[in-house]
Amino acid sequence: MTIGFIGGSGIYEALPLHDTRTVSVDTPYGEPSTDLEIGEFGETGEEVVFLPRHGPDHQLSPTHLPYRANIHALKQQGVEYVIASNAVGSLQEELPPETLVVPDQIYDETKHRDLSFYGDGIVVHQSFADPYSPELAAHLAESAREATDAEVVEDGTYVCIEGPQYATMAESEFYHEQGWEVIGMTTIPEAKLAREAEMAYATLAGVTDYGVWRGKQDDRLGEVLKHAKNNEKAIKETVEHAIRHFPEDVDPDAHSALEGTINTPSEAIPDDVREDVELFVGDYLDD
């Protein structure tokens, strides 16, 4: 079993791994955010692949991240489970900064991103009613409660906006009034692409501030960075606990998510398209 960890804002260094190696990966979708760091976690024998989403020095904005290359790179390394971390704003009073949230739903407000590996020569229609792996999300929430002193909230909706600008007052007030929990910029298309790659995916979201529905803030970025730094310890402790106590009998539906979803006959898929997606759909297509 191989576990991938995608580090969000404030998470730029890997977990304590040994026998590490740095791997440079090329994909049909370009280069990932940076090289992958791969190693064995503690005495567990579990292989972990680490990728800082925004690059080692936060050079990449949410809109311009190479999401498809990142997921393809993890799949190349045999990753079956993806734990992601995200810095998010709170949409509700009862979710103050430094709360950890493991959402179960997404509301997509992005506009300019490649949302799929498929569509140009091969059409795939997958269920996305439950955008995060329920099995992995439950394990992540339990790990956060057991490994940290943070307030942990299980379930809730992550509103994903385009960015890199924050939401307008009208948008923020609307999301708040819907009763949704957190707002961020990176879970889409990451969660969709992981599902298309048949990897179980869940996220641990660390609250950094309140949205402007609660009133404008001076030095908002400074506030975000301060709480993101404080969240780093709890996020890493959660992920380490989750890996150390990973259940042996978990069998997520995500691992067979492509079954019965490919509309295009094998013989109608262009050779170059098939080559690009062979890593994902090869077992489902006729020779």
Rank of each mutant, 00 (worst) to 15 (best):
D287G: 07
N230Q: 11
D130K: 13
H64I: 06
E198P: 05
Q178S: 08
R145M: 05
D251V: 01
E142V: 00
V79T: 06
S85K: 05
I243W: 12
R195G: 10
F128L: 15
D218H: 12
Q165V: 08
E146R: 12
P164T: 04
E98F: 03
D272K: 14
A268H: 14
Y284I: 07
A87Y: 05
N231H: 02
I83G: 01
E31W: 14
H18I: 02
P32S: 00
T22W: 10
P28M: 15
P16I: 13
V25T: 14
T110Y: 02
T168H: 14
A194M: 05
N230A: 15
L100G: 07
L100H: 11
L285R: 06
E248I: 05
D251A: 13
T168A: 15
P131L: 01
G4H: 10
S127P: 08
A200N: 04
K75R: 15
A141C: 01
E142K: 08
T63A: 13
T110G: 01
S127A: 12
T186V: 11
I161T: 09
G30L: 05
E142A: 11
R274L: 14
A87R: 12
F5L: 02
T157S: 01
E46A: 11
A147T: 04
I235L: 14
G163D: 02
L136G: 13
A14Q: 02
R214A: 14
R214W: 06
Q165S: 12
G45E: 09
D271K: 15
V224K: 02
D155V: 00
L17V: 14
G42M: 13
D287Q: 08
V79A: 02
L115Q: 13
V273F: 03
H255K: 09
V25Y: 05
D209V: 00
I11D: 00
H245C: 04
I122A: 01
H241G: 04
G215I: 08
S133P: 07
T186N: 12
P252Q: 13
D114H: 12
K233L: 08
G8Q: 03
D35M: 07
Y12P: 00
E196T: 01
E40Q: 10
N230G: 09
A257V: 04
G222S: 07
